[in-house]
Design a protein around this nucleic acid. Sequence first.
DNA 1: CGCGCGGTTGAAGAACCTCAATTCGGGTGG
DNA 2: CCACCCGAATTGAGGTTCTTCAACCGCGCG
Lengths: 203, 203
Amino acid sequence: MRVSQANGRPRQVLYRKGQPCADVSIVRNGWAFRFAITASGRRQILSFLLPGDLFSTSAVFGDRMHFSVQALTDVAYCGFNREDLQRLIFADPKVSRTFADVCSEQEAFSDDRIIDLGTRSAEERIGRLIIELMARLDRRGQVHDNMFHFPLKQQHLADALGLTQVHVNRVLRRLRESRIMELSNGVLKIFNTSAIRKLADMR
Amino acid sequence: MRVSQANGRPRQVLYRKGQPCADVSIVRNGWAFRFAITASGRRQILSFLLPGDLFSTSAVFGDRMHFSVQALTDVAYCGFNREDLQRLIFADPKVSRTFADVCSEQEAFSDDRIIDLGTRSAEERIGRLIIELMARLDRRGQVHDNMFHFPLKQQHLADALGLTQVHVNRVLRRLRESRIMELSNGVLKIFNTSAIRKLADMR
DNA sequence: CGCGCGGTTGAAGAACCTCAATTCGGGTGG
DNA sequence: CCACCCGAATTGAGGTTCTTCAACCGCGCG
């Protein structure tokens, strides 16, 4: 299998919407995010990418994607040759199966985001995104004492959740003042796990 | 290939979230939609299903899905045996490829919906949903003279677009009064195609 | 006839946005 | 070392969009 390696600095665009690429990329280290810019100039962050995440499952089949990818921190990523990867996946039913699971997990994540944006308040959206990221980081062993490295700026939260940076700021203040969680200097601390779960799960 | 047939009446739930099913369902006739109900009781419509649409690509691999499906009109649908279908898809690279394309198209649709909900106004969301559905119906030859059967109630538009039925009503009134389009008696007529495209594409 | 579903409308309010000014901290050049 | 700068966070004031609540209408149907 032909594999290429690459690195990205914070803010660097790792892939630009619509560009053809022979490789299927996967994050090895650091954080990145998928996003799109609308005709009116607004940015929507579609998802955050953590170590081990494919840029997109659809990249396994097509050579261009409908979104861009930007690094959030220093990032190491690698690209698998598409044809080699396809052979690898479809040669072994067990691997096909694993890949299929990844696809349906992605579908579920997208649908969850749609539900968040369509039905939930700013507080709930923020709570749920934090919970989701914490769970994903926990699986990677990157959560200690309800505390973890969190490189998103308020503007990233805003663009992921369909809010403005100013409003995100106010919600974070409320959460901080009610001693539920605190985000500062790129570190997120959860003080009241049950409160944030309650916030995230129900009205 | 083992295939089963079934029909559904309007409002009938065709699949309930989390239920195991041995079949992979596909709509043959009529309209349906995928949806979820949040803990607070709000409904989010995730997508509309037209003739030829799979309930979900993830159903090809897993035996339970994370959403429910409800009929909007009289619906005919059929279920393919999962194992048979998997063999059919993965036996022929050409079929695998087609299936993969369907998967990435789904991904693109989901991301578009996220962008709509995250960045656009009520008017834009409604305009874009109409345009999307019109394009999909057009491919099926169901649009004549910028006019087509449209079984969605205002409540469905609201639940798909993260709005209230009351607000959808007001937006539709504005669109009607400005002679852009009209929705009544289950028929949608577009009077001003360029206006609605402008509405849908840009700020 | 009465009932229920869906559409329409008004009034009032909540959630969120826009604009703009200020602060804060870390880096950088003089 | 200090002045400056820049990205990011914070805060206030005022406005817009959308929601909520509630009432009413029209229509098809048992």
